[in-house]
C-alpha cells in the first residue's frame, strides 16, 4: 500500500497494542514531517516507549498501519522491513551499548554488519562519527569506562554512523539531572540540523522537548490527544493538554520549593 503524503517521512495510523488484558495503545496516530524533530510526551506508564518500539518494529502492533516514506510497513515482507531498519536508527533508553566491545567497535558494528565497505573505510567513518560527537580520544575504552553523558553520545554516534533518515530516541534524558537533560536535547537538535535526519523523541521532559522540537504530540490513555507545534501546545485549551500542563507547572513549583528548602519531600512523593 502506498500513501500519498510526500512531506511525511513517517505516518502512524490507529496503532493498537495490548499485553494480555492490558491495553497500552488504543489507536495512536502520529505524523512526522521530513527533517523535523517530533516529540511524543506523556505521563510515565502511558505507553510512550511501547509506541516507539512499535515504530521501530521491535514490537509488532496488533492493529493499525505505519507508513515509512509512503509505504506501509505492515504490508511489506521481511526484506522491506529490513530495508526500513537500515534507514532508521533507534536510541534505547539504556543506550544498549555492547559492553564487550570498545567504543570504536560499537560505532563500527552497524557498518560492519550491514554494508560491504572495506575495513579501512569503516574505521574512517566510525572515527569521523566519534570526532563529531567529541569521543575520538575514547575510542579504545569500553562503555563501562565512560560517563553517562559520553555513553549517550556514543549511542548517538552508533545511531548516525549509517547516515539514517530517521532516528528514534527512547527517553534520551532518563535518569539525568536538569543540566544534562538540557545538554542532551541541545545535542539532539544540533546533530539533527548537522546531519539532517528526522527525529522522533519520546520523553516526559516537557520544557526541554518544547524548546527543541518542531512538533509535539501528547499520548494519553493509548491515544494521541494532541499533535501540533510547541506554540500550539502552549496555547491549546484541550482538557487533556491543560491538565498535563497544569501538572507539569505544579511539579516544577514543588521542585523549586524543595530546592529552596520550603518542603520536605515525603517517602512516597
Amino acid at each position: 500500500m502506498v500513501l500519498s503524503s510526500p512531506d511525511l517521512l513517517l505516518q502512524v495510523k490507529g496503532v493498537h497494542k495490548r499485553f494480555g488484558a492490558n491495553v497500552v495503545l488504543a489507536g495512536a496516530d502520529l505524523d512526522v514531517p521530513r527533517g523535523s524533530v517530533v516529540t511524543v510526551m506523556g505521563r510515565s506508564g502511558t505507553g510512550k516507549s511501547v509506541f516507539l518500539k512499535c515504530l521501530a518494529q521491535v514490537i509488532l502492533a496488533d492493529e493499525g498501519q505505519i507508513f515509512f516514506d509512503g509505504r506501509a510497513l505492515a504490508d511489506n515482507d521481511a526484506k522491506s522491513r529490513l530495508e526500513f531498519r537500515r534507514r532508521c536508527s533507534f536510541l534505547f533508553q539504556s543506550n544498549a551499548l555492547f559492553d564487550s566491545l570498545t567504543a570504536l567497535e560499537n560505532v563500527a558494528l552497524p557498518l560492519e554488519q550491514t554494508t560491504d565497505l572495506r575495513d579501512a573505510e569503516i574505521r574512517e567513518r566510525s572515527l569521523e562519527a566519534m570526532r563529531q560527537l567529541e569521543l575520538e580520544s575514547h575510542q579504545d575504552r569500553y562503555p563501562s569506562q565512560l560517563s553517562g553523558g559520553m555513553q549517550k553520545r556514543l549511542a548517538l554516534a552508533r545511531a548516525i554512523v549509517t547516515r539514517p533518515e530517521l532516528v528514534l530516541f527512547d527517553e534520551p534524558t532518563a535518569g539525568l539531572d536538569p543540566l544534562r537533560r538540557n545538554a542532551v536535547f541541545t545535542m539532539i537538535a544540533k546533530y539533527q540540523r548537522q546531519f539532517g535526519f528526522t527525529a522522533v523523541i519520546v520523553t516526559h521532559d516537557v520544557q526541554e522537548a518544547l524548546a527543541a522540537s518542531d512538533r509535539v504530540a501528547l499520548l494519553d490513555k493509548g491515544r494521541m490527544n494532541f499533535q501540533g507545534s510547541p506554540t500550539e501546545f502552549r496555547a491549546s485549551e484541550d482538557l487533556v493538554v491543560t491538565s498535563f500542563r497544569d501538572n507539569i507547572t505544579a511539579l516544577n513549583a514543588s521542585l523549586a520549593a524543595i530546592r529552596q528548602g520550603e518542603i520536605i519531600p515525603s517517602e512516597d512523593s
Partner: peptide, 10 residues
C-alpha cells in the same frame, strides 16, 4: 543489546 542488533537490521 539483542534488540539493538535487530533495530540495526542485523
Amino acid at each position: 543489546q539483542v534488540a539493538a542488533l535487530e533495530t540495526m537490521g542485523v
